[in-house]
Amino acid sequence: MAEIRFAGYGGQGIIRSGIIVGKGASIFDNKFATMSQAFGPEARGGACSSQLVISENKILYPYVTRPDIFVVMSQEAYEKFEPELKEDGLLLYDSDLVKLKKKREKIKLYPIPATRFAEELGNRIIANVVMLGFFTAVTKLVSKEGMEKAVADSVPPRFKELNLKAFNKGFQHAQDGN
């Protein structure tokens, strides 16, 4: 079982990231995935987040308390949620947008300039999909095929190609060992 938190600011597709990974895991990879998100004032402020639990078995407790994986795309969200990350957790972050503060020893760091890559591909709105490609390669929680299907399934047909390109850009970045 893996607990994951996605966080960033509103408009970055943070909630959608949770949905896409959940979809990839539960529909295309036949695992169990439960996504919940913050609603209300906490969803409207600067930091926006979604929580996802992925498991081989039925998920009983739906909330994330100590995430194994923290995917973050803004400084504010980093500062707000970083303390809850497990001591040996994985931290995936947009290296242009998040400046790391005190580093915890056992945490594994995975930087990627996702937003910059997205801009290079023509639209910064797909930064989250670049991040998802990177996430897929780093965590191996969901298969590449499953994630590609989930991405394709979650965007309007005319943006499918661009999104898959973004996904693969992120995926490749991890393969390149950066």
Partner: peptide, 9 residues
């Protein structure tokens, strides 16, 4: 709310 706002297959 928990069940209503929970996303699953």
């Amino acid at each position: 709310e928990c069940v209503g706002h929970m996303t699953e297959k």
